[in-house]
Amino acid sequence: MSERTIRLEVLRYRPEQEDEPTWQAYDVPCREEWVVLDALNYVKDHLDGTVSYRWSCHMAVCGSCGMRVNDEPALACKAFLRDYPDHIRVAPLDHFPVERDLIIDQDRFMESLSAVKSWLIPAAQPSEGGEYRQTQSELARFRQYSMCINCLLCYSACPQVGLNEGYLGPAALALAHRYNEDSRDGGRLQRNPATASNEGVWECTFVGECSEVCPKHVDPAGAIQQMKLASSLDWLLRPFRKREDDS
């Protein structure tokens, strides 16, 4: 049962007592197998109950514990202490308003999800048995993009999210692509006013950091480039479509 003392510095923000975030350090006795989330939970349980952060599953599927660990967007439950030095700084995800400590205001993302209509818009009703039928290769076209856990690490990594307030962002666009590529879906043209707008795929300059930090290997950057091509084709063919097909 080996222990290691980690100096965990947390970027605190308490709106009722300060205008700007400030660092606060805690010395945490850690077990070898711990992740950053365990160290944070130790702080909250034993050292400072006021530290605020989101977490849930502790196994990298819920997407709640996204934060910057030593300036890299990461899931706190997936950041193993053995991969870090003795001094670890945790800060909230970049490019979002900070409500308190490590808790960010996610409204921008929720609005983006609505804007891109990130739900199935069926192309046709299911077959007589009541199920949609889909082959393995049809599934393969979009499965990767369905792995998104909405953790927002990609938003923190993407400079265009920071530079452009209205930009829909990597995850929302990748999710739109997930539905556009789903053989059961017929809503691409309905999504275009959002995804193919100036605040959609066209704000992306393929920096690629979003895909680098994604814990689920979704590759939103790739999704967006594929959508640029698809949108361009839709744009070229627009004069030949019936008016009512485009929303």
């Binding site: 709106p15 700007e20 490019h95 409500e99 205001d105 409204d107 400079p159 920071g162 530079l163």
Partner: peptide, 22 residues
């Protein structure tokens, strides 16, 4: 939503902060 959320700003030299950005 908090009354005064802290809004981070982005400097023009943002791209110097990280080798992948450079």
């Amino acid at each position: 939503m908090s009354a005064q959320p802290y809004r981070p700003t982005m400097s023009a030299g943002w791209w110097l902060a990280r080798p992948s950005y450079v």
